[in-house]
Design a protein around this nucleic acid. Structure first.
Lengths: 155, 155
DNA sequence: CTATATGCAAAACCTTTGCACGATA
DNA sequence: TATCGTGCAAAGGTTTTGCATATAG
């Protein structure tokens, strides 16, 4: 089921005059098999568990390629590092991210996409990846009385 | 013209049982005087130029307070560090950020705000700050032939 | 054979933290 | 006077980079 994407990636790499390596392929395959969000550490561990000993620098060096190719996007930062998600076959959506518990809610809305695409065209901007993020406090944390993590509960 | 906000901030601080210090006031004043986006380094330098020797840790410690109070938001990450903007008296808007040159275009659209607010209400989410970011390549860089900065120009 | 990629170790960098001192309420 | 904040220096942790080796085209 990933063949199409791998083929597309091979094309992408060659068009850029770069090399199609087994590491890049394996990283991409692993990413495509992830359901939901991921970060570099998680990706690294998943690969190791499958005895694919790929270094973190290689992962870090490959991610911008996948972003540029349009397969993934960096969606937000939490606890000092970046989180990514697969964008292929995904409807563009908005994230509500809770600053207290880190919970992420995905909001899908066709109107939203239409709006973004319209603006993109107007501005002559070539969209590679897009983030629509709202940070705040989720319903649960509001009830418990949590506020911003750094300053703990409200007084 | 900032009196209102400073007063509001004083209230905010006291309600939280914290202390209203000259450092916090000076940082906030400086931020409010900035037109557009800023990062910690820039803020630090601006304060130094005015002989306000406020340490970076103090700046880092104050920003979450301003975010929570609703005065600023962290809008995006570029070149390894966070960028912020003042949200007071600002219409919510979408950012188109160029991955090559870092240029940011602000797109204002009332429909967009309505959409977000509706979703917010639906989900019971308390919005503190919001990012609406699209990363891509701007018209100029497309013409020049620039792509993702890490991989330079396209071959 | 040449250009590019990988892995390791180390560097770089932003951001956070411990601690002693100083300021606020 | 007790609590909280500041500044310094150092730590922490993610991401990047230099370099030698390996691999793709």
């Amino acid at each position: 089921m990933f063949e199409e994407i791998l083929k597309d990636f091979k094309d992408f790499i060659r068009k850029k005059g770069l090399k199609y390596t087994s590491e890049r392929e394996e990283i991409l395959e692993e990413i495509l098999s992830i359901d939901g969000h991921f970060d570099v550490e998680e990706l690294y561990q998943r690969l190791r568990q499958k005895n694919k000993k790929i270094s973190k620098p290689s992962i870090y060096r490959s991610l911008p390629l996948f972003i540029e190719a349009g397969y993934i996007q960096e969606v937000y930062r939490h606890e000092g590092h970046s989180h990514y998600e697969v964008t292929i076959n995904k409807t563009p959506h908005l994230h509500f991210i809770c600053l207290c518990c880190g919970k992420v809610e995905e909001i899908i809305d066709p109107e939203l996409e239409r709006l973004i695409r319209t603006k993109e065209a107007e501005k002559g901007f070539k969209l590679l990846t897009y983030h629509l993020e709202s940070f705040g406090i989720c319903e649960t944390c509001q009830k418990v009385g949590n506020y911003h993590p750094r300053y703990g509960r409200k007084g």
